[in-house]
Design a protein around this nucleic acid. Structure first.
Length: 274
DNA sequence: ATGGGGGCCTGCCGGC
DNA sequence: TGCCGGCAGGCCCCCA
């Protein structure tokens, strides 16, 4: 999503911001529309699943898509052809227009998403940011870190990898996919996986994410990439959403199972994953 | 202190 | 056709 927004938002001035309801998951900050209007986006960054847009006002706009959030871009796009603005839709909660004629619509049916304005200088102390673990694609996420984080942990490895304090940014799909590639059962307690197998998870997690980003995201159902086109990583899922299908490991005769763990579906091969 | 489950919302799909 | 249950990419909060 950051990559999709980059050409229209970074360096652009927000000419107009329309806020169509008082809240998403939490109330919007006071006077959000006024505080956005006239601001120039100096940098567009990402931390975990949050988009962070630094403004020249000293504030940073934080955006989270939750489960069903989408960003739709229309109008002038730098280096691209012109897209007509779409007709307004139900759940278009925030609409931002730039000086250069681009329109960005935040649409979120379930409203699990979020937006907030942070003081840029102290953004890392924000309650949504401060406890996040290392970025999985960054240098701070390494074998030693994951081994230490798993040590003594009683929770299933599935829950541990979804814990944003251990590693930031993994969701249900990518944890399922990484565990299948690593041959680790989602049910296994994190603290009872041998160090070499934990270490092997690190490059696997990086691979899964890098491939997903390259393919443009997962894009299930109504979730779209920032440019409005469907992503393709969903076609490469090996286990997620494949309950009852044959395991894709060569020679493996098992079928993929689904099991609910702390309220989330885990998909896994009972033969390949131990 | 840690871990599991509930809850927040709406929409869609399949079964009856 | 309509109704109902189940399910969905996340994550805070409460309780044991």
């Amino acid at each position: 999503m950051r990559r999709g927004l980059l050409p229209v938002l970074e360096g652009a001035r927000i000419a107009k911001a329309a806020v169509n309801r008082p809240d998403l998951r939490w109330p919007f900050p006071e006077n959000m529309a006024e505080r956005l209007t006239g601001a120039t986006v100096t940098a567009l960054r990402r931390r975990s699943k949050y988009i962070l847009a630094d403004l020249d006002t000293g504030e940073t706009l934080l955006i989270h898509l939750g489960m069903s959030g989408r960003m739709l871009i229309s109008g002038n796009q730098v280096g691209q052809f012109h897209h007509a603005h779409p007709a307004p839709e139900k759940h278009d909660h925030v609409v931002i227009e730039t000086d250069e004629g681009a329109r960005i619509i935040f649409n979120d049916a379930r409203r699990f998403g979020a937006m907030d304005l942070l003081e840029t200088a102290t953004q890392n102390a924000h309650w949504l940011i401060r406890d996040l673990g290392p970025e999985p694609l960054g240098n701070a996420f390494h074998e030693t870190h994951l081994i230490a984080a798993f040590k003594g942990k009683r929770s299933p490895v599935k829950s541990a990898l979804l814990d944003q304090r251990i590693v930031a940014g993994l969701g249900n799909i990518y944890v399922c996919e990484a565990l299948w590639r690593a041959g680790i059962s989602p049910l296994r307690h994190a603290g009872r996986i041998g160090a070499p197998r934990v270490a092997a998870l690190v490059p696997i997690i990086r691979d899964v994410l890098a491939e997903a980003i390259e393919a443009g995201g997962s894009s299930l159902r109504d979730h779209r990439q920032a440019n409005g086109e469907l992503g393709y990583f969903q076609h490469t899922f090996r286990v997620y959403g494949r309950e009852g299908e044959a395991c894709q490991t060569p020679e493996c005769a098992e079928k993929i199972r689904r099991k609910v763990q702390s309220g989330r579906s885990s998909f896994y091969c009972p033969a390949c994953q131990r």
